[in-house]
Every structure is written in C-alpha cells, then in structure tokens.
Amino acid sequence: MSQSHVKANEKHPLFPIKNVIGFVLSLILTFVALGLGAAHILPFGPIMLIIMGLAVLQIAVQLFFFMHFMESDGPAYHVIGLTIGIINAVAVIGGTIWVMTFNSQVH
C-alpha cells in the first residue's frame, strides 16, 4: 500500500483551471451532439453512433476532470470495480436487446 496517490502537499493550483477546462469540454460535447441531432445531415444509425461516442467522452470528462478518478489510497480498486461495472452494464443492455429481438422475428 505504498503508492498512495492522496498526498496533500502537492501544489494546489491557485485557479481551478482543470475544472474550468472540464466544464468547457462538457459544454462543447453537448452542443456538438445537439447540433448533429438537429441538423439531420446523416442517417439515424451513424448519427446515433457519433452521439453515443460523444457521451462516452463526457464520461471521461466527468471522471478525470471532476471526480478525481485517479486518486486512491493504496491500490486503485475502484478503477477495477468501475471498469467491470461498465462492462457488465454494456453486457446487460446489449445482451437484453439481442435476446429480446425475438419480438420482431416471431410476428
């Protein structure tokens, strides 16, 4: 448990530059998604793919700019936990949609 990443004596920035960058990034990502959605320049599939990609970037922004994701006392167990959580979340959503497509086949 030697590699503690929670040292207090690191220089604390005088201006919350990281937080501001995060905020600006999240706004940009949101407006790009909105613009793409409203403009109807691409068909449904590709647009949704891009929008979902932007949403994934938003997760990264929240985690790294706001949530101090890499801070931990000892090994970063929460990183492993959240990673498995995300994999399982994708599995539940993807698996469910796949399993339940019987809807469209049976009729």
């Binding site: 698996g95 796949w98 399993v99 339940m100 497509t101 019987f102 086949q105 049976v106």
Partner: peptide
C-alpha cells in the same frame, strides 16, 4: 448465461 432459463421463448438460434 441468463437466457438459458428461457431457451423455449423462441429467441434466435444465435442467442
């Protein structure tokens, strides 16, 4: 493995 509880639902062969 959860869907093995209702194989008889009639999901696709792939599922």
């Amino acid at each position: 493995v959860w869907a093995h509880h209702y194989f008889t639902m009639g999901a696709s062969a792939g599922v």
